[in-house]
Amino acid sequence: KKKREHFRQLLDETSAITLTSTWKEVKKIIKEDPRCIKFSSSDRKKQREFEEYIRD
């Protein structure tokens, strides 16, 4: 659960993310961040979390 919170925090702090951002764009920006790396090695899982984040 904590990894998820850190991942969401990373998304919060990434000012380039807007409601129209695509995962492909965002992934390029955040892929080097340790919170992104630690969250999951599964790209699909990160994408799902990102899409949920955008909906919230």
Rank of each mutant, 00 (worst) to 15 (best):
E32M: 14
Y53P: 10
W23K: 10
D56Y: 15
E25K: 02
I54R: 13
R44F: 13
R55I: 07
E51I: 01
A16Q: 09
E52W: 12
I37A: 12
K31C: 15
E49S: 02
L10F: 04
K38F: 10
T18H: 15
V26D: 07
E52V: 10
K38T: 11
D12M: 07
K1A: 05
R44G: 10
I30P: 14
K2Y: 08
E49I: 07
D43H: 04
L19S: 12
E49Q: 03
I54C: 08
K27G: 02
D12E: 13
D56R: 07
K24P: 12
K2E: 14
I29F: 07
R44K: 14
R4A: 12
S42A: 13
E32K: 04
Y53E: 07
Q47V: 03
S15V: 11
P34M: 08
V26M: 12
C36R: 00
I30E: 09
T20L: 09
R55P: 06
I29R: 10
Y53Q: 04
W23A: 03
D56V: 03
I29A: 07
S21F: 01
R48I: 10
F39Y: 10
F7M: 04
K38Q: 15
K2N: 13
L19G: 11
K2T: 04
Y53F: 09
W23D: 03
L10P: 05
K46A: 12
D12R: 07
R35W: 00
T18W: 00
K46S: 03
I37Y: 11
A16F: 08
R8P: 00
A16R: 05
H6I: 06
V26E: 02
R4V: 10
F39W: 02
E51T: 04
W23M: 00
L11G: 01
R48A: 14
E25G: 00
R4D: 12
S40E: 08
W23P: 09
R44P: 10
T14R: 00
Y53S: 07
S21I: 06
S21R: 00
R55E: 06
K24Y: 12
K45W: 10
I17D: 01
E32P: 00
S15F: 06
R4G: 09
L10V: 03
T18E: 13
E32A: 09
R4S: 10
S42F: 06
I54W: 02
K1W: 08
F50V: 06
S21W: 00
K46E: 06
K31W: 10
K45F: 11
K28M: 09
D12T: 06
L19H: 06
T18I: 02
E13Q: 04
R8L: 06
K3H: 13
D43M: 03
I17H: 04
F50K: 03
D33Y: 03
D43Y: 00
K27F: 14
T22P: 05
S41E: 12
